Computed example of a mutant assay.
Amino acid sequence: MNGSTANPHLEVIEWLAQGLRDEASSERIFVQLCERLMKAGIALSRATLHFRVHHPQWLGTRLIWHRGHRDADVQNIAYDVEATDVFLKSPFQFVIATGKEVRQKIQLHGPHKFPVYEELRDQGHTDYAAWPLDHTQGRRHLVTFATDRPDGFDDSDIALIHSTLPLFSLVTEIRLKNQLARTLLQTYVGPHASEQILDGATTRGSGATVSAAIMICDLRNFTLLSGSQHRDNVIEILNEYFDLMADPIERHGGEILKFMGDGLLAIFPLNKPNACQRLIAALTSAYEASARRTSVKFPVRFGTGVHVGEVMYGNIGSQRRLDFTVIGPAVNLASRLETMTKQLKRPILISADFVASAGCAAQADCLGMHNIKGFDEMIEVHALNIQPPRLAPQ
């Protein structure tokens, strides 16, 4: 090997063992590994790292590094990729299934075993190697390296790369598990709550008082839906309904704290500018999107209660099972208003306090004072007017 250091093997191993305590990114570690292998004399031209991840949208992540690039290209991989011909006829499938190394000189005449070798040859690469990257609990990932040196890799190149893999596997597993914890928390409790929990808000009763606009939304006719539709159809309709609501809430800066059967609870903290107006914008987008659904068997309709006030935001529950949520009279009133949408036959009911905070009197109809369960004084209730878009004739 054309080594540029006295002991390139020990240098890379020492860096993997001791030099990465402050580096949290698997992507940066992977790029630095490629650069260090090149410094050690290996003529790398391309490398890829394939991780399986626990994400609601993606099966995995692929990092692609090319020589001379400061960063790797990061690509998300869809769940259906493993059913495609591209995957089934690839060295990736073989390595993942068998746990064996793949090595191929690719400057050869005639067709190769895997079509990807033809692509690599056309790009000027001459040799290719892929290894399983095994983590604990039977989780297997993949790393590949290619060179464009005319003679390909030599035996010492392969030996050096292979010797780095046990430590590289350990280093990446630690980072991947950290990212997994963050992804799972963001998926199940939301981005802000997840950061609070990761920062140490894990004791029962820990939390803070937050001023926020609160919305509680509930799907209509869910009992009829559950009794008349197959279970899979019910789940599909629920997911579509939550997409209709969740996407605009998150896009406009709100945070969904909880899915409750066929309902959801979300807040727009008032420490962000125009929080109440952004809540109205989110509801407008959701109801307009719902009105555009013209070719479905079961209509998705929902009622929403909205209020603004102080809430207790934090951990509540038993000693061993906690829920990070919001509670307080403001949440209770939003819930009561949502329930009243059925009685008053208006899809969005808002409190007078919210009208004042949002400055939306021109967009609302005052429905008068109402006795509301759990509140001693009568509450002034308004109905928010959202005009659905005009649809072209079918």
Results as ranks from 00 to 15, higher is better:
Met1Gly: 01
Glu11Arg: 07
Arg21Leu: 10
Ser26Met: 07
Glu27Cys: 00
Phe30Asp: 02
Leu33Glu: 04
Leu33Tyr: 01
Ala47Leu: 06
Leu49Ala: 02
Pro56Leu: 15
Leu63Lys: 13
His69Gln: 10
Ala72Gly: 07
Tyr79Phe: 02
Thr84His: 09
Phe114Thr: 03
Val116Tyr: 07
Glu118Cys: 06
Asp157Trp: 00
Thr172Pro: 00
Ile174Lys: 05
Gln179Met: 08
Thr183Met: 13
Tyr188Leu: 02
Gly190Asn: 12
Gly200Glu: 04
Thr202Val: 15
Arg204His: 08
Leu225Gly: 03
Asp232Met: 15
Ile235Ala: 01
Asn239Thr: 03
Asn239Ser: 07
Asp243Leu: 01
Gly254Ala: 06
Pro269Asp: 07
Asn274Phe: 12
Arg278Glu: 00
Leu279Thr: 02
Ala282Cys: 09
Thr284Gln: 13
Ala286Gly: 08
Ala291Gln: 09
Ala291Phe: 06
Val300Ser: 12
Arg301Pro: 05
Arg301Ser: 03
Arg301Trp: 11
Val308Lys: 04
Gly309Arg: 02
Glu310Trp: 06
Asn315Gly: 04
Gln319Glu: 13
Arg321Cys: 07
Val326Cys: 06
Pro329Arg: 07
Cys360Ile: 10
Cys360Gln: 08
Gln363Asp: 00
His382Val: 07
Ala383Met: 07
Asn385Ser: 12
Arg390Thr: 12
Pro393Ile: 11
Gln394Glu: 11
